[in-house]
Simulated scan of single mutants.
Amino acid sequence: MRIGELSERTATSRRLLRYYEEQGLIISQRCANGYRAYDERLVDRVLQIRGLLDAGLPTRIIKQILPCLDKPRSIVFADATPDMLATLEQERDRMTDRIDCLIRNRDAVAAYLDAVRTHNDQQGAVS
Rank of each mutant, 00 (worst) to 15 (best):
N105D: 13
G4W: 05
R60I: 04
A125D: 13
R2T: 08
D107R: 08
Y112I: 07
A32F: 05
C101K: 15
A55L: 08
L16E: 04
E89W: 08
L47C: 11
I103W: 07
L102M: 14
R30K: 13
Q122L: 14
I65S: 02
Y20V: 01
Q29P: 00
V43L: 09
Q122E: 15
V109S: 06
Y19H: 12
I3K: 01
L47E: 06
S7W: 05
V116S: 06
N105E: 15
F77L: 11
L17E: 02
C68A: 12
L69W: 07
Y112P: 00
D93R: 11
L113I: 14
Q48R: 12
L6I: 07
I99T: 11
A86Y: 08
M84V: 10
I49T: 02
T12A: 04
G124K: 14
R15G: 05
I3C: 03
L42D: 00
A11M: 10
G56A: 09
G24S: 06
L69N: 08
Q23A: 10
S28V: 02
I75T: 11
A37F: 10
L113Y: 07
D83S: 07
N105L: 14
D97Q: 14
S28L: 02
L85A: 07
L16T: 15
R18L: 10
V46L: 03
V126Q: 14
R98M: 07
A11F: 10
M1K: 04
E91M: 10
C31F: 03
G56I: 10
R92I: 06
L16C: 07
L42A: 01
A78W: 05
G51H: 08
D39N: 13
L66H: 03
C68R: 08
Q90V: 09
K63H: 14
E40S: 11
E22K: 09
Q123Y: 06
Q123G: 06
L102F: 12
T96C: 08
R14I: 15
S74G: 09
N33E: 09
I75Q: 06
R36G: 02
Y35S: 05
C68K: 04
R2H: 14
D97G: 10
A80H: 11
I65D: 01
S28P: 00
N33Y: 09
A32R: 12
C68D: 04
A86Q: 12
I27K: 13
P72H: 08
A11S: 14
D44L: 10
R50F: 00
T81N: 06
R98Y: 05
C101F: 12
L17S: 01
